[in-house]
Amino acid sequence: MKRTAVFPSLIRDIRKYWAIFRTQLVNSLAYPLDLLSRSFSMVLFMWIFAQLWRTTYSASGQESIAGLSLNDTLWYLMMAETIILSKPRISTQVAEAVKDGSIAYNLNKPYNFILYHFSVSFGDSLLRLVPNALIGSLVVWRLAGPPPATRGWPLVFVAVLAALAIDFCINAMIGMLAFITEEIRAFEWIYAKFILILGGVLIPLDFFPEWLKTAALSLPFAYTTYGPARLFIDPDWDRFVTLISRQGAWLLVCGGILALIYRKGTSQLAINGG
């Protein structure tokens, strides 16, 4: 009796959020030039990274540093940058909805505010991933040689999706902070920098001192960028299983905290006027 009640509703929910996701995808596709111009940053960053790491490898006189060749390092950085540059600024959107009160209008709509933003965010991210990865790959291929084995790509794609989900939860939490502090920009900046350093976007965690690498691997940031990017250059099943199970654990923790903050925030929401 319960089963028949739960499943049609679940399927209806999935269809609803799938429709939101698809609408966002189509919306973004309407502005192809905008999408391409955003990918300009990929060219800029990959070119600078190539100069920096080429010089560093040549100065060190080593073919491989911490087990990574120059080619590995640059393809790693390409994947990490692709992920980071494909994320929409969801914390700003959530914070704006909290600050201007439009979150109140969404509460009586037939969808969950968080899942709505999750679907929109995924639609945006997936569409940005493609040009970023393509343009980044072209630059790195030209500067450093061919990409890693293609057999790992489907696994990397799954890991990237999990990474984007963790990042969404943390970003939405930052946006929800607007319930407490009106200004959330400082939190956004600091989170972004944590991702750059502890997420291994600027430098692979393999180059860190051992204690710092261990510390970074015990935080969620490493699973939003370092994990998928490392899997990309060194794809194997065991690495994938370890990564996806840790991503799953962080997703549960971050998703749980987000749900709690959302429930507490909306229960204290004061709506004035009509």
Binding site: R185, A186, I197
Partner: peptide, 12 residues
């Protein structure tokens, strides 16, 4: 926030 942001970036 900006001071901390820059300091974290310098950690690189």
């Amino acid at each position: 926030g900006m001071m901390l942001n820059n300091a974290v970036y310098f950690v690189f």
